[in-house]
Amino acid sequence: MSVTATAPPAAARGSRGSALGRLTLTELKLLLRERVRLIVGVGIPLILVIIFGSIPFYNHPARVFGGLTLLDEYVSILSAFSLAVLSLTVVPMVLADYRAKGVLRRLRTTPVGPWRVLAAQVLVDLALAVVAVAVILAVARIGYGVFLPQQLAGFVVATLLAAAALMAIGLFIAALAPSGRAGMTTGQVLLIPMMFFAGLFIPIPAMSPAVQHVSHATPLGAAVEAMQYAAQGHWPHLLPLLTMAAYAVAFGLAAARLFRWE
């Protein structure tokens, strides 16, 4: 085996692009072909914005929200909901399915290894989450006169930390789920109490103080707290940001330790 025999022609190498780039592009194509993920991640939260926006009750300023409408509050909740659905159901579904089908095992026998496909998957779902949040904000602004987040940088930071915390939990579920279906079901079951504490069913200010404390300790409750605060023009408090960062680190490390390739 001489070195020259294994050296590739420069042209061939240039046209291939990096393996991570190719994997991400491939995952993006697969995402667009699989309408279920688009409907779950973007479609459902968007439909909820339209439904809530069309109910007059949600469009009246209320004293409990300091003069804002219920819909103003709901835009942050629905943005967080979109992040949660993608992270907790789509990520475990895809990755556990890849494991069950031997996709990850096959990648272990190639030079790229399976970590890059995980990264590509998370990148694509994060991109989809960003698109989902942007679409929700745009539709709420254009369709129902909801103001865009007043403290935009704070809103972006809160959204990214929320995405990181939720993705880490999604990866943790994917690490343990034996099949794609099991991963998705686990995520869906987890989503219901998390959405309760995030105020999807009862607004957080309407909860009893004890329940509000629990809410702030949950990843989605912290996310909604920080995102709503930023939407109203304030830099989010440190506590919810730290709470989300803690979830991201703890579940991210646990997922990395427990993730099985087969």
Binding site: T6, A7, P8, R16, G17, S18, A19, R22, L23, T26, K29, L30, R33, E34, Y98, K101, G102, V103, R105, R106, T110, P111, V112
Partner: peptide
């Protein structure tokens, strides 16, 4: 060992070829 159901034959080959040096 399988591939994602929606991945096309040419895409799979092009993707896997990008993993290798030569």
């Amino acid at each position: 060992s399988q591939l994602p159901d929606r991945l096309r034959v040419a895409e799979a080959l092009e993707l896997y070829s990008s993993f290798y040096r030569a």
